[in-house]
Design a protein around this nucleic acid. Structure first.
Lengths: 215, 215
DNA sequence: CAGCATCCGCTTTGATACTG
DNA sequence: CAGTATCAAAGCGGATGCTG
């Protein structure tokens, strides 16, 4: 990207990550640090192969992304964020939060990847019973199942299934994301076709239950 | 901008403000809400006139910017952010903060506008003596003087001069911005040519004085 | 198959000139 | 002052080809 040539912090940031696709690449690496070229390609539906290469090079030169040559069992190169790249997390979360209300208006032919759900979870969820027993909620939507786990007051999200989940959310991405992003109450989502099986209090432990939705 | 077509909050945000120049236009309106086309042009050195019009239209359609037809004494149209547009402030600040370390490496031919200094001030300054008397520091750099005022624990920045400033910072934009962004100590900046006249404690009241610089 | 590189048509941007 | 109009240059998207 051509530099804005402005002595301003925002402009300098945009000089680095303002190119089309750049910040989405950062999103992918924030969600799945240390992943392969092909993983990135899968997590960025719509990008063309040459653009991905170009952007990775640009971000590498800018000190945001690093590439590690993985040793023989894997024998591939892994892309990850540098420490400096990880510092983009607050900005990415702030931008993602701003876009949450727009998710409601999305059309049905939009691409969706299950691991993207970790972003809204990080933004709006909190463990309201940090002393409670470890807990897991499974999400069945999109290209792969995802598990949200709460333990010791911390919340983690990972791809895969849970052995004995306290709750299971099943339905179209729009409804699951609506609930996770705090833009849809569980009741509304159920009325529109979302299914929730398990302990009704499990989700309540994580969802913001103040009167005001997340701003 | 062509939509990313991804059901993700970040992607949705970038669909709206991811175009080149868009977020810098938002910056201008965050700093000087209700300004004229020409003011925007001046605050966005490097943009071309047709691009500015295109972006303003796009942002208007997206509900981020609104235009008010000012009544006869002024008789011009004023651009401002909508409530929704103002909600971009946290994201803009987060991005601006990330770029602060990059300001040090800027070259001397970069464009600079004094009112941009309000961003770092908002990010790193705090009034450490909120009960103290009202105070003003004048900044003399860039295209116009700027005053930072602290009163009742709140900090304001405005273009213009102060009648009886408690301190005056004079020097090239790079050094003044370095101090404001917390990337340069006052001593370092003075050694490089920054001048500070007035009460040495006035600046201390606003600068972060913990050992660690702003992350 | 992972990880690129090249080519080509289309869209976006940038610079400047011009208008009510 | 507040935009339009025009056009060249750069960027992007999609397809395809190459290499281990």
């Amino acid at each position: 990207m051509r530099s804005y040539g402005q002595h301003c912090g925002l402009a300098k940031t945009l000089d680095v990550i303002g190119d089309r696709w750049s910040l989405l690449i950062v999103r992918e690496l924030l969600l799945r640090d240390g992943c392969r070229y092909t993983d990135l390609l899968h997590g960025l539906p719509g990008i063309s192969t040459n653009l991905l290469v170009d952007r990775l090079r640009d971000l590498e030169r800018a000190g945001v992304v690093a590439r590690d040559e993985a040793p023989p069992p894997v024998a591939t190169t892994l892309y990850r964020l540098t420490a400096r790249g990880k510092e983009l997390r607050p900005a990415v979360l702030a931008l993602g939060r701003w876009g949450a209300p727009l998710l409601a208006k999305g059309s049905d032919d939009e691409a969706f990847r299950s691991h993207w759900m970790a972003l809204p979870v990080e933004i709006v969820f909190a463990d309201h019973a940090p002393k409670g027993p470890p807990m897991a909620i499974e999400l069945r939507t999109g290209d792969e199942p995802v598990v949200i786990e709460a333990a010791d007051g911390a919340i983690h999200t990972r791809p895969g299934t849970a052995e004995d989940p306290d709750g299971v959310l099943t339905g179209p991405p729009r409804l699951v994301m609506g609930v996770l992003a705090g833009k849809l109450t569980l009741e509304d989502a159920r009325a529109r076709g979302l299914e929730y099986e398990g302990d009704p209090e499990a989700l309540d432990r994580l969802l913001p239950h103040s009167a005001a939705p997340a701003a």
